[in-house]
């Protein structure tokens, strides 16, 4: 039987990989993927801790996080399409204006 602390350690590692992804990549789509990775790392912590205290609340929160992530992906990718259409780039360093 795996103790919950192992799940928490995996969650911490995945979150750190997500942070590294945002910091070292300049492609907005990969940065967006790394943010989703951080969301999923936190979801794992929610499910593991919910099991530890024997409560369904953690899973309900994960359900809501998934919903928000779906909405976020739709809006975020629409913004990326719009940026690419106007600037012809997905490099975050070249997207330095709050207008087009």
């Amino acid at each position: 039987m795996t103790p919950i602390v192992d799940y928490m350690a995996l969650s911490a590692i995945l979150f750190a990989i997500g942070v590294i992804g945002v910091l070292i990549r300049r492609n907005v789509i990969v940065m967006f993927l790394a943010i989703e990775l951080m969301l999923n790392a936190v979801n794992l912590a929610f499910v593991a801790l919910g099991r530890r205290i024997g409560s369904m609340d953690g899973q309900v929160i994960v359900f809501f996080v998934m919903t928000v992530a779906a909405a976020e992906a739709a809006v975020g990718l629409a913004i990326i399409i719009s940026m690419f259409r106007n600037r012809e780039t997905v490099n975050a360093d070249e997207l330095n204006l709050l207008r087009w």
Partner: peptide, 23 residues
């Protein structure tokens, strides 16, 4: 910095004995 963040979280988890109990 990200590796330091992960290490910090490891230290916190290792000081939480209730996380080791299996239920």
């Amino acid at each position: 910095a990200a590796a330091a963040l992960a290490a910090e979280l490891f230290v916190i988890f290792s000081h939480a004995p209730k996380l080791r109990e299996v239920r």
